[in-house]
Amino acid sequence: MLRKWAVFAIAVFSLFGLSVVPAAAAGGDFAPPGCFGERYGILFGQGISVSCFPGEGYGYRVIAHCSTGSAFWYVVGDPVPYGFGPAVAECSGALLVPARVVAYRVDEI
Protein backbone atom coordinates (compact mmCIF):
# COMPACT_ATOMS: atom_id res chain seq x y z
CA MET A 1 0.00 0.00 0.00
CA LEU A 2 2.90 2.33 0.73
CA ARG A 3 4.21 1.90 -2.82
CA LYS A 4 0.84 2.88 -4.28
CA TRP A 5 0.78 6.09 -2.24
CA ALA A 6 4.36 6.87 -3.25
CA VAL A 7 3.55 6.37 -6.95
CA PHE A 8 0.40 8.48 -6.58
CA ALA A 9 2.36 11.29 -4.86
CA ILE A 10 5.02 11.28 -7.59
CA ALA A 11 2.33 11.37 -10.30
CA VAL A 12 0.57 14.34 -8.67
CA PHE A 13 3.87 16.15 -8.17
CA SER A 14 4.83 15.56 -11.83
CA LEU A 15 1.46 16.81 -13.04
CA PHE A 16 1.80 19.94 -10.90
CA GLY A 17 5.31 20.55 -12.26
CA LEU A 18 4.12 20.29 -15.86
CA SER A 19 1.29 22.73 -15.25
CA VAL A 20 3.61 25.34 -13.70
CA VAL A 21 6.12 25.43 -16.57
CA PRO A 22 3.83 27.12 -19.16
CA ALA A 23 2.84 29.78 -16.61
CA ALA A 24 6.50 30.56 -15.94
CA ALA A 25 7.27 30.75 -19.67
CA ALA A 26 4.43 33.23 -20.19
CA GLY A 27 6.40 35.85 -18.24
CA GLY A 28 8.55 36.47 -21.32
CA ASP A 29 5.63 38.13 -23.14
CA PHE A 30 6.23 41.50 -21.49
CA ALA A 31 8.93 44.02 -22.32
CA PRO A 32 11.06 45.45 -19.50
CA PRO A 33 10.18 48.90 -18.10
CA GLY A 34 10.77 51.62 -20.68
CA CYS A 35 10.54 49.23 -23.64
CA PHE A 36 7.74 48.24 -26.00
CA GLY A 37 7.81 44.85 -27.74
CA GLU A 38 5.75 43.63 -30.66
CA ARG A 39 5.67 40.19 -32.28
CA TYR A 40 5.19 39.81 -36.02
CA GLY A 41 4.99 36.94 -38.46
CA ILE A 42 7.58 36.05 -41.10
CA LEU A 43 7.67 33.20 -43.60
CA PHE A 44 7.91 29.96 -41.53
CA GLY A 45 8.60 31.83 -38.31
CA GLN A 46 8.04 34.74 -36.00
CA GLY A 47 10.00 37.86 -35.06
CA ILE A 48 10.15 40.33 -32.20
CA SER A 49 10.69 44.08 -32.51
CA VAL A 50 11.54 46.09 -29.37
CA SER A 51 11.85 49.87 -28.96
CA CYS A 52 13.27 51.34 -25.73
CA PHE A 53 13.53 54.79 -24.18
CA PRO A 54 17.07 56.08 -23.54
CA GLY A 55 18.87 54.41 -20.64
CA GLU A 56 22.34 54.53 -19.13
CA GLY A 57 24.20 52.62 -21.85
CA TYR A 58 25.02 53.23 -25.50
CA GLY A 59 22.09 51.23 -26.82
CA TYR A 60 20.28 47.90 -26.56
CA ARG A 61 19.62 44.63 -28.35
CA VAL A 62 16.92 41.99 -28.15
CA ILE A 63 17.56 38.28 -27.58
CA ALA A 64 14.73 36.00 -28.72
CA HIS A 65 14.18 32.54 -27.22
CA CYS A 66 13.00 30.44 -30.17
CA SER A 67 11.42 26.99 -30.36
CA THR A 68 10.13 24.59 -32.96
CA GLY A 69 8.86 21.22 -31.80
CA SER A 70 11.38 20.04 -29.20
CA ALA A 71 14.27 22.27 -30.33
CA PHE A 72 15.15 25.50 -28.49
CA TRP A 73 17.71 28.16 -29.42
CA TYR A 74 18.53 31.85 -29.06
CA VAL A 75 18.68 34.54 -31.75
CA VAL A 76 20.60 37.71 -30.88
CA GLY A 77 19.57 40.89 -32.67
CA ASP A 78 21.94 43.61 -33.80
CA PRO A 79 22.79 46.39 -31.31
CA VAL A 80 20.77 49.57 -31.82
CA PRO A 81 21.72 53.00 -30.41
CA TYR A 82 19.00 54.74 -28.41
CA GLY A 83 16.70 56.77 -30.65
CA PHE A 84 17.54 54.94 -33.89
CA GLY A 85 14.71 52.46 -34.31
CA PRO A 86 13.77 49.08 -32.93
CA ALA A 87 16.00 46.12 -32.19
CA VAL A 88 14.85 43.05 -34.13
CA ALA A 89 15.38 39.29 -33.75
CA GLU A 90 13.71 36.68 -35.98
CA CYS A 91 13.16 32.97 -35.40
CA SER A 92 13.19 31.09 -38.71
CA GLY A 93 11.87 27.55 -39.11
CA ALA A 94 11.07 25.21 -41.98
CA LEU A 95 8.00 24.41 -44.06
CA LEU A 96 6.56 21.72 -41.80
CA VAL A 97 8.00 23.02 -38.51
CA PRO A 98 7.64 26.82 -38.26
CA ALA A 99 9.52 28.52 -35.43
CA ARG A 100 8.03 30.86 -32.85
CA VAL A 101 9.27 33.31 -30.24
CA VAL A 102 8.68 31.74 -26.83
CA ALA A 103 10.14 34.63 -24.81
CA TYR A 104 12.59 37.48 -25.22
CA ARG A 105 14.82 39.75 -23.19
CA VAL A 106 16.50 43.10 -23.75
CA ASP A 107 20.20 43.65 -23.01
CA GLU A 108 21.58 47.14 -22.52
CA ILE A 109 24.93 47.76 -24.17
Rank of each mutant, 00 (worst) to 15 (best):
V101F: 02
T68F: 02
V80N: 01
I48Y: 03
Y82C: 12
V21Q: 15
G34I: 09
V97Y: 07
I10W: 07
V7E: 09
V102L: 15
Y104S: 10
A64G: 03
E108R: 15
M1F: 02
G69W: 03
S14G: 06
V62W: 00
R100M: 06
F44E: 14
G27Y: 08
A94T: 15
A23G: 11
G47R: 04
A89Y: 02
I109V: 12
V76T: 11
G28A: 06
G83F: 02
I109R: 14
A71W: 04
A99C: 11
C91T: 04
Y74Q: 15
F30A: 10
P98V: 07
A31C: 06
D107K: 11
G41Y: 03
A87F: 00
I63D: 08
G47K: 01
A23R: 14
F8W: 03
G37Q: 05
F16L: 12
G93K: 02
A24R: 14
M1G: 09
V102H: 04
L15T: 13
R105T: 13
E108Y: 14
W5D: 11
G41W: 03
G17K: 13
E108M: 13
G17E: 12
V97I: 13
S19L: 15
F13M: 13
Q46G: 08
P22F: 04
F16P: 00
P98G: 05
A24F: 15
G55K: 14
F8D: 05
F16T: 07
C52P: 04
D29N: 08
A11P: 03
G34S: 13
A11T: 12
S51I: 11
D107P: 13
R100Q: 10
V80F: 04
K4S: 09
P81V: 08
R39G: 05
K4G: 09
P98W: 03
P79D: 12
R105M: 11
R39Y: 07
K4P: 02
G28I: 01
F13Y: 11
W73R: 13
E108S: 15
V106P: 10
D78F: 07
P98R: 00
V80G: 00
V76K: 04
I63Y: 01
S70H: 09
S51H: 11
F8G: 12
V62E: 01
P86I: 01
R39C: 01
A89Q: 01
A26S: 15
D78M: 08
E56R: 15
P32H: 10
A71D: 13
L43K: 09
E38K: 11
S67N: 03
I109G: 04
R61S: 10
Y104N: 04
K4D: 05
D29Q: 13
F30D: 14
A64W: 00
Y82G: 07
A6K: 10
P79Y: 00
S67M: 05
P86F: 02
